[in-house]
Design a protein around this nucleic acid. Structure first.
Length: 813
RNA sequence: GCGGGAGUGCCGGAGUGGUCAAACGGGCAGGACUUAAGAUCCUGUGGCUUAGUGCCUACGCAGGUUCGAAUCCUGUCUCCCGCACCA
């Protein structure tokens, strides 16, 4: 039978759509299952095989779960706000709205041809005011709750993006979109979301998530909790708290270092030192313009500020230095330096000839401050530490902290690396922040009833922030007092959009509220989330924050958005590089579909390796999948349907059902495919309809169109995709058949071996077996089988006497 | 520097304590079919060896634990990824 793949694909795609085969309704009594892929940014260049790979992973699971009786929610939407569209607008003069709408249209068309079983009715787009209106709604709610605040602070600025960035969007000191562009620090007044309010919970709940360990670790490290002690040092008569994890070394402090980027640095600089400090600041600024590599290898450098700090326990005066290696916004931006027991402090002290004082003595040898070549950071007993002498340093950490607390000189504390999320963006193509500035009332939130604050369409690009230059947008009236006011012209980080879109799918058309609570509580959390690992500390973290915040405001009843997370691998082109348009190594689904049908592409993508691994596209490799598909089609064309099948087939079928079911559940699609192939390869020419149907069902999630077609060909009127997944009948699984299969294999290889040894190319083969084994071997092709006790057997060399149980004797002639 | 992962045949990849020379696919070789090519089908594809089901060798490298290791442990090399002066 020849199959017109294209026609078949269209036929079934249309039927699925017409009959709303994949529409999800929450009133079902069935158990829900929410499968979701991270919604894509609709780039103008459309989809390539890499996208197909990604979406197929989810589609297979969605179809599988549906067939297993789950009420499946499997939606798709578009992360359609963002810089690329706006930059394209500046370059090409095309309005982002227009290019975005076109790109989305293209995406939908392409995704539909992939045969993905989305419920298209639930589509959402973040640039739709029906969606971003609710971003504004959440912003106001957060504001009410004190989870949003405006603050002037040093922020990351990317000169290429022309906007500030969140901490999470700075990678290795550079912009996440521009690897070659180092972010600059600007002091600006910006909107922040208080993600740190949930730092503890965000950290603690990670352990309960069924996420890849890698992502969990990354997120844990990003949140970065450390226990320590805050110690008050007195500088110029003012208290200055300093965070340390090593209060046991307090007696070893010989200097202090304040971050060169510290906003209060100049307060500590004396007249005499001012010039030198300024020179130093200029110098490190120059260095920071250089490449990241050089910064990495940077020496610890610093300059004396002229001020002194008083050690609260020793009352000693120690110099305060400004240093390039102290992080300004961690702790208080100043550290106590203990050169004897901290490598960085050690290097610094050596360089500037600062005193080194040993206060921890290791058990096995004696430290000498003058001879040390590096800091001793291990454990030991305290010395030079007054009443804490001889105490083990672990104990001293606790005791000294208690002592400080008692004397109100310090306190036990916890520090996080996590910063609040900066969401202001000085860009046009995003959600307007719903706030106005009134000369009389100050910052006034836009009332809920006035939402959405619409993004104006008629704007000028290329002359700064198009919102700021749009008088019509900017000038407004204060909602409180009615006098003249100006609108906030910053828009929200698009990660705000993606922090809750998965909830909107549950009720995407709601005009009165972001979503109906009942619906969200029915569908959420997402049971299986699929997407790239690059979002470990971005989208995945923000979404977790959002969920917790919404829970505490009573909007939802769950605290985690994504129960299971799966990171798909990257598809590489035949040249070995990640498939991308800029690389020029893309393979387009359309082309492959034209030649082989999309099912073949799906099958191939899933067979290469486990879907969490990086894989390489291969034009040759797909031939193998194509061959198999043709084989299956031909088989259905010729197969003769009979009532009963051999127990051997039943055993194989049920074993395959059992294993494939498990494999798909664990997203081990590659293994499932191997077993399905094996099953089809071992089906005989005459077989029962039941076996055919069950086999076809197992195959369906991978190749949905062809299996529908064959299902129909078997005389079925229903959709196979809505049929019940077969259940393995354990009673029918008989390992003996496998053993027999092995035995036959072994016999064949033995015959081959003898052929090789004797040099006989196409001999006649006679096999002698024990009478009870006759059944096992009699159907093997190309050999003549005798029972050893057969009087009429042909055995000129009397080989039959060599036959043993499970070891047939062989004679070649 | 710290953290995570990986190193198996000609190649992509299975296998995570015994039944494994290693699933499945690709490639290659031989055969069948064909005037021929393609498609298709069959067979082979570490080495040795006796007309056989045996032996040896292999899972980056070197050791160790174990009756037994690709699989566990230690060291070491290489590669990939993430974080990076967080006190």
């Amino acid at each position: 039978m020849k199959m017109n793949f294209k026609a078949i694909e269209k036929k079934w795609q249309k039927r699925w759509e017409d009959k709303k085969a994949f529409s999800a309704k929450e009133d079902s009594k069935k158990k829900k299952f929410y499968v979701l892929e991270m919604y894509p940014y609709p780039s103008g260049s459309g989809l390539h095989m890499g996208h197909a790979f990604n979406y197929t992973i989810g589609d297979i699971l969605a179809r599988f779960k549906r067939m297993n009786g789950f009420n499946v929610l499997y939606p798709m939407g578009y992360d359609s706000f963002g810089l690329p569209a706006e930059n394209a607008a500046i370059k090409a003069g095309k309005h982002p709205k227009k290019s975005t709408d076109e790109a989305i249209k293209k995406y939908i068309k392409q995704q539909k041809t992939l045969g993905l079983s989305y419920d298209w009715n639930r589509i959402l787009m973040s640039h739709d005011s029906e969606y971003y209106k609710w971003n504004q709604f959440w912003f106001l709610k957060f504001l009410e709750k004190g989870l949003v605040y405006r603050k002037k602070s040093p922020v990351n600025w990317c000169s290429k993006c022309n906007t500030v960035l969140a901490n999470e969007q700075v990678l290795g000191g550079c912009c996440w979109r521009h690897e070659d562009t180092e972010v600059k620090i600007k002091h600006l007044e910006q909107w922040f979301i208080k993600t740190t309010a949930y730092a503890n919970e965000l950290l603690d709940c990670i352990d309960n998530l069924q996420w890849p360990d890698k992502i969990k670790t990354m997120q844990k490290n990003w949140i970065g909790k450390s226990h320590g002690t805050e110690i008050d040092f007195e500088v110029n008569g003012k208290k200055f708290p300093v965070f340390t994890t090593r209060p046991d070394t307090i007696y070893g402090v010989t200097f202090m270092v304040i971050s060169a980027q510290h906003p209060r640095l100049m307060e500590f600089v004396t007249k005499e030192q001012k010039k030198e400090v300024e020179r130093f600041l200029k110098k490190i600024k120059r260095v920071s313009q250089k490449s990241m590599k050089e910064v990495e290898e940077l020496d610890k450098e610093g300059v004396f500020t002229g001020s002194y700090a008083v050690n609260p326990v020793t009352k000693e005066k120690v110099p305060v230095w400004a240093g390039n290696f102290v992080v300004a916004d961690y702790g208080s931006g100043m550290v106590m330096a203990v050169p004897a027991h901290d490598q960085r402090d050690f290097e610094f002290a050596k360089k500037y000839n600062i005193n080194i004082k040993v206060v921890i003595q290791p058990e096995t040898y004696e430290l000498d401050a003058k001879k040390m070549s590096r800091a001793y950071t291990g454990e030991g007993n305290l010395i030079n530490s007054d009443k804490f002498n001889n105490m083990n340093n672990r104990e001293a950490i606790i005791k000294i902290t208690k002592f400080l607390e008692k004397n109100k000189l310090g306190r036990e504390t916890i520090q996080f690396k996590l910063r609040d999320w900066l969401i202001s963006r000085q860009r046009y193509w995003g959600t307007p922040i719903p706030v106005v500035y009134c000369n009389k009332c100050g910052i006034v939130p836009v009332p809920e009833k006035d939402l959405p604050v619409l993004l104006p369409m008629n704007v000028k690009f290329g002359e700064g922030n198009p919102l700021a230059t749009n008088e019509k947008f900017v000038n407004t009236k204060c909602p409180k007092c009615g006098s003249k006011a100006r609108r906030e012209t910053d828009t929200m980080d698009t990660f705000f959009d993606s922090s809750w879109y998965y909830m909107r799918y549950c009720d995407n058309k709601n005009k009165k509220e972001p979503f109906d609570k009942k619906k969200v509580n029915y569908w959420m959390p997402v049971d299986q989330y699929i997407g790239g690992a690059e979002h470990a500390c971005l989208h995945l973290l923000y979404s977790r924050f959002f969920t917790k915040a919404l829970r505490d405001m009573g909007f939802v009843k769950f605290g985690e958005p994504f129960i299971k997370l799966f990171n798909q691998g990257m598809l590489h082109g035949e040249d070995g590089a990640v498939m991308s348009k800029s690389r020029g190594n893309v393979v387009l689904p359309e082309e492959i579909s034209e030649r082989y049908g999309i099912d073949t592409a799906r099958l191939f993508l899933m067979s290469i390796a486990s879907p969490d691994k990086d894989i390489e596209w291969s034009d040759r490799g797909i031939e193998g999948s194509s061959r198999f598909i043709r084989k299956v089609i031909n088989y259905f064309d010729k197969v003769e349907i009979i009532k009963n099948v051999e127990a051997r087939i039943e055993s194989k079928l049920n074993k395959t059902i059992k294993e494939v079911t498990k494999d798909i559940e664990c997203l081990r699609y590659n293994l499932a495919i191997i077993k399905i192939r094996d099953l089809f390869n071992s089906l005989p020419e005459k077989v029962s309809k039941d076996v055919l149907e069950k086999s076809l069902k197992l195959f369906h999630p991978f190749c949905p169109h062809i299996t529908e077609e064959l299902w129909e060909k078997l005389g079925n009127k229903s959709f196979i995709t809505l049929e019940k997944w077969p259940i393995a009948d354990e009673k029918k699984i008989d390992e003996r058949f496998d053993m027999q299969e092995q035995a036959v294999k072994k016999l064949k290889s033995d015959i081959e071996q003898i052929k090789k040894l004797t040099g006989k190319k196409a001999p006649k083969v006679y096999v002698y077996v024990l009478p009870r084994e006759l059944e096992i071997y009699k159907s093997v092709d190309g050999i003549k089988v005798f029972a050893v006790n057969d009087k009429n057997k042909y055995d000129p060399e009397n080989k039959s006497k060599k036959a043993k149980p499970n070891k047939p004797a062989i004679y070649l002639e």
